[in-house]
Design a protein around this nucleic acid. Structure first.
Length: 192
DNA sequence: CACCAGATCCTCT
DNA sequence: GAGGATCTGGTGG
């Protein structure tokens, strides 16, 4: 099993967002292994991106966005926890939002956490993913480049015939025209 | 201390 | 496609 190293994340978020597609998000939760293939992401830039949480500077809640590449940035939206992975370098507030995964392992536990949903709908959106993978603020700021971490990303080659689609970001009124959302074309677990 | 703006989801029409 | 549920940090008086 190969884990994505820090240098993978220490690049332009637009590149990282696309390269993360097909990789496997791994979460150890109360002794259970939860795994899912990343099928949808969004890039948030360090400069000139009004929608990025770092645009208005460092705040109490976005501290971890300023950590070095390869750390988790967990923030809440309404009653949901959303997961970002920090890119580029320290004090560079760019990241990639994990919007959806295709459940691979620990599916029963995900169903328990979510309460409802078919396999395709367990984590086909950032908030749903947060529930299915038990993402909490305790994971905010953790290093995701170590196998001892409760959360990391496993490296695996993407299917050769897989193609990537692009669009503006979802749910972001400002700067929504920028093509910074990426997903695996045709995958059933992509949000709508 | 009150108000409000969100990187959402779910349930209706 | 629209609207309500519902939570928290940031901002200003």
């Amino acid at each position: 099993m190969n884990i994505l190293p820090k240098k993978f994340y220490a690049r332009d978020p637009i590149v990282v967002a696309q390269d993360l597609l097909g990789k496997i998000l791994v979460r150890t939760y109360k002794g259970t292994l939860l795994r899912g293939r990343i099928v949808e992401t969004e890039a948030y830039l360090a400069e000139g991106d009004e929608a990025a949480h770092g645009f208005k500077g460092k705040k109490n809640r976005n501290q971890s966005l300023y950590l070095d590449a390869g750390h988790a940035y967990v923030h809440t939206m309404r009653q949901y926890a959303l997961l970002d992975l920090v890119t580029e370098g320290a004090d560079t507030p760019s990241s990639v939002l994990i919007r959806a995964v295709e459940p691979l392992q620990g599916i029963e536990r995900m169903q328990e956490l979510r309460g409802v949903g078919s396999r395709d709908e367990l984590a086909n959106g950032p908030g749903k993913l947060g529930i299915a993978f038990a993402i909490t603020k305790e994971l905010d700021g953790i290093d995701v480049t170590r196998t001892t971490s409760p959360l990391f990303v496993e490296d695996t080659p993407r299917k050769e015939d897989a193609t990537i689609s692009t669009s503006g970001r979802v749910g972001v009124p400002r700067a929504k025209d920028a093509p910074l959302r990426f997903w695996i074309t045709g995958n059933a677990c992509v949000s709508r």
